[in-house]
């Protein structure tokens, strides 16, 4: 239906456009402007000065945090992809239709529970006298320091990303043409080999997109690194919240935020390129 936008059409189209331009595009654009403002006597003033960029990029602690955040997010996205794959594979190929829809339903539930509450709950498991250490004690092990470690941060990232990654992987796996798998078997490709030679390539787009989302979520998360990782090592998100909430250093926080957006755009672009590599469709 090719019709020019009329008053009728605009009534439906415009509100969202206006809202997202006003409250999504403008804030992000303002963030760019803000990064060039200066702070004098704890007051921000409009300016066009590269000082915030120079200050932040000149600090070792910033680059350390950048490296840490990137490494943690990359590790989390690889780890969650690897851990989620057997689960989504089994759900798509080994369960009946009914069991599969239940599995999907159950995986959606975590999205409607508070992430904060789940993170707190992990504290109960991981603290020095927590559930895990008590159980280890039964078999004569530990106690180990589990909380406030990088491992605990990872568990937090997994909590955040695992359900989403399973669902996204699942979504690409269930749409694989089953005859391709039969054809591979028929051409002497064994079970495990079929997974790598046929199933993973077939689902590549979905798998890469899932990993990308895991990266984006972990990269921006500040809850797990603080409340499970103990704030050490510092991540960019911690740096942003600290810089924002303590004192008027918003322009510097803006520099961090923009650097993060730039990084995410680059990663997303690379991931999508990789996902569709060699495809002409």
């Amino acid at each position: 239906m090719r019709r020019p936008l009329s008053l009728y059409g605009l009534t439906f189209s415009l509100p969202l456009l206006v809202w997202q331009v006003l409250f999504f595009v403008f804030p992000l654009v303002f963030l760019v402007a803000l990064s060039f403002w200066t702070v004098k006597n704890f007051r921000m003033q409009p300016d066009f000065d590269g000082v915030n960029w120079a200050t932040m990029y000149g600090r070792a602690v910033f680059w350390q945090a950048y490296g840490t955040t990137f490494a943690l997010a990359a590790a989390a996205s690889v780890l969650v992809s690897v851990l989620a794959f057997p689960c989504s594979y089994a759900i798509s190929f080994k369960l009946s239709d009914t069991a599969r829809s239940w599995a999907v339903f159950l995986m959606v539930i975590p999205f409607f529970t508070s992430y904060l509450v789940r993170v707190y709950s992990w504290q109960i498991f991981l603290s020095d006298a927590g559930i895990v250490n008590v159980m280890l004690g039964w078999v004569g092990l530990g106690p180990y320091t589990l909380l406030n470690t990088v491992g605990a941060t990872m568990i937090g990232y997994l909590t955040l990303t695992f359900p989403l990654v399973v669902l996204l992987q699942l979504f690409s796996l269930v749409f694989i043409d089953r005859t391709l798998i039969e054809a591979a078997h028929n051409l002497r490709c064994g079970r495990l080999r079929t997974v790598f030679a046929v199933i993973i390539p077939s689902a590549r787009v979905g798998l890469v997109i899932a990993a990308l989302f895991a990266f984006i979520l972990s990269f921006g998360d500040f809850v797990s690194p603080i409340y499970l990782g103990g704030g050490d090592p510092t991540t960019l998100s911690i740096l942003i919240t600290d810089t924002t909430k303590s004192g008027q250093q918003w322009p510097r926080a803006a520099v961090i935020a923009l650097t993060m957006i730039g990084t995410l755009l680059a990663v997303a672009f690379a991931a999508v390129r990789f996902a569709y590599k060699g495809r002409t469709k």
Partner: peptide, 16 residues
């Protein structure tokens, strides 16, 4: 099936 030598041509062709 992968231990037999009975290659098949599918109705859908099932090309990768």
């Amino acid at each position: 099936t992968w231990s037999r030598d009975t290659p098949m041509v599918w109705q859908s062709l099932a090309l990768f």
